[in-house]
Amino acid sequence: MGKEKIVALDHIDLEIEKGEICCLFGTSGSGKSTLLNMLAGLEKPTKGNIKIKNVSVEKLDEAELAVFRQKYIGFVFQSYNLIPSLTALENVALPLIFQGMPKKEREKRAKEMLEAVGLGERLRHKPKEMSGGQQQRVSIARAFVNRPKILFADEPTGNLDTHTTIEVMDMITRIAKEYNQTLIIVSHDPEIATYAHKIITIRDGNIYKIEKNTDHGKEITYEKQE
């Protein structure tokens, strides 16, 4: 029990360009979340190399990773992961606190960000007092408040209905484009994939195929040879 060796990811070779919107697509258990966690430095690969802005992420220690995440990376989770005891405004301002930004400025930034996601009226509400879509928008605001270079979204719409999903996805891609940010979304929903420039399908720990969304429809740039 538990001793069995499980290979989640096996020989993945992947490059993502700056400013790209990229979707890691796959069924549950395919290894897509593991890939995301590794890209974000939350998990370390047993072998191999992850380079972001020419920094080998897997070689950073915990303290360096914290600073690295602070500077370059934003996160949106499926289950929002807001701090229940804090208001929307405080939740959004939290990453700025860790950067040591003065209170006035970080509240201003957080407020701007919440307004950008359409929650200008709900600054003082706690997560429990908001709907799922609103909570996810707060978490998006939190992810973007830092102006991260890369935004990771792990099933960002997994808990949302179709209508809200569209709303949230529109918002994420709009903001990402606005600031020329790289967006990496993990999803099993084909609907989400349509927002991406590049769709990477993962299957059994391997890249199964890479597609590009062009004006003329999908174009396969790589396909694993069986």
Binding site: A40, L42, E62, A63, A66, V67, R69, Q70, K71, I73, G74, F75, N81, L82, I83, P84, L94, P95, F98, Q99, R142, A143, N146
Partner: peptide
């Protein structure tokens, strides 16, 4: 969970 979240959004260990 909260601690995890804070770590992910950039809290340093000392924080």
């Amino acid at each position: 969970r909260e601690i995890g979240i804070m770590k992910v959004i950039g809290a340093k260990l000392v924080d």
